[in-house]
Amino acid sequence: MVPMHDPIEGLEPIPPFARGALRHEVMRRLLRAIFAGSLPAGTRLMVLKLAARFGISSTPVREALVELDAIGMVEFVHNRGAVVAPFGPKELADIYQIRRILESEAARSATGRIPVRSLQELRDETSLLASGPGNPEWLACAVAADRRLHELIASGCPNRRLSREIHRYDVLVQTVRDLIGANEAAQRRAIHEHLAIMDALLAGNADEAAAAVGRHIESAAQAAVSALFPGQPA
């Protein structure tokens, strides 16, 4: 009988230079494998085996699995431990729906609480990016501005629980972005969406800020589902 392939064996060790925040690096590697289909639903994620494969201690692996469970990518099953949860276009769309709900409400709550100078400086920078050349340096700046806007909104939200829930999805969203790549057309569309968000925040219009964030994340969800699951409905 031919032995069954263990998908854990396909994971690469984590090199020392990538060990800044180990649990996040473990999350990224597991998420990439799940998105690629090399860790299919139901795969057991045994802490000691993963730790040995990554060449690290078991603590960050255990922490990563707990965080992945919190965002629905892993499930803890009685007598089996952690297993990969079912994942497809619907599950990805569901994750972005949760993000939309959380970040829209955060934008509403953060209106009037984000330092105006920080917001205006980012708006000016983003406005310049709107007519930028579209080269790799431009893309890197656009992605960085995107992250700063979302961070300003999360940090400006007075509800710390809400802010923490938003940050739960940071690694997942960044992993999706890394996999699908920085696309110029998508990034230009996002820039205009960001400008609408910042205009609403600067105007003190909480309802419009929430609505603009909702539209932006819905657009990002459609792009992510199309890129990771081409031709499949959400």
Rank of each mutant, 00 (worst) to 15 (best):
R161W: 15
R123Q: 07
R123D: 09
S118P: 02
L129H: 02
A220C: 05
Q174T: 07
D178K: 11
P115R: 08
L128K: 14
L179Y: 05
R100Y: 05
A186M: 12
R188W: 02
A154H: 06
A130E: 06
A154C: 13
G156C: 02
A196Q: 11
A144E: 08
E137Q: 07
H150F: 08
A93E: 07
L128F: 09
D207C: 02
H192G: 04
A210L: 09
G132Q: 05
N159H: 11
A190D: 06
A190T: 14
A182L: 12
I114H: 01
I98T: 11
R168D: 14
A203Y: 07
H167L: 11
I191C: 01
A182F: 05
H167F: 10
Q174W: 03
R160K: 14
I114W: 07
A142Q: 02
P133L: 09
G132C: 14
M198S: 07
I217V: 15
A130G: 08
Q97A: 12
R99F: 12
Q187M: 13
A209F: 01
E218I: 04
R148W: 10
A190W: 11
A196F: 11
P158D: 05
R117D: 12
R215V: 13
R100P: 06
H167C: 00
A154D: 05
L102M: 03
T126P: 04
R188M: 01
T175D: 04
A196H: 06
E208F: 04
N135E: 06
N159S: 00
C141Q: 15
I166L: 08
I153H: 10
E137P: 00
R189S: 15
N183D: 14
P133W: 03
P136V: 07
E121W: 06
E137R: 15
R188C: 00
R161K: 12
D94E: 07
R168M: 04
A206I: 00
L119A: 11
N205K: 08
A93H: 07
Q187H: 12
E103W: 01
R215C: 05
I180E: 02
T111L: 00
E193I: 00
G134R: 04
P158F: 03
H192P: 00
N135F: 08
A200I: 08
D146N: 10
I98C: 04
R160D: 10
E208W: 04
A220E: 09
Q97G: 15
S109M: 13
D94C: 03
I95S: 12
R189D: 15
A212M: 11
A220W: 05
C141M: 15
A206V: 02
L128Y: 10
V171N: 00
L128V: 03
L92E: 01
R148Y: 03
R100A: 08
D170I: 10
H167K: 13
R123N: 02
A212F: 03
D146F: 10
A212I: 00
W138V: 12
G181Q: 12
R189N: 14
I98D: 11
I217W: 00
Q97E: 15
R189I: 02
A182P: 11
A186E: 10
E184H: 07
A221E: 06
I217Q: 09
I114M: 15
D178L: 12
H194Y: 11
H216F: 04
I191S: 07
A210C: 00
R108Y: 13
H192A: 08
S131M: 03
R177C: 00
H194L: 03
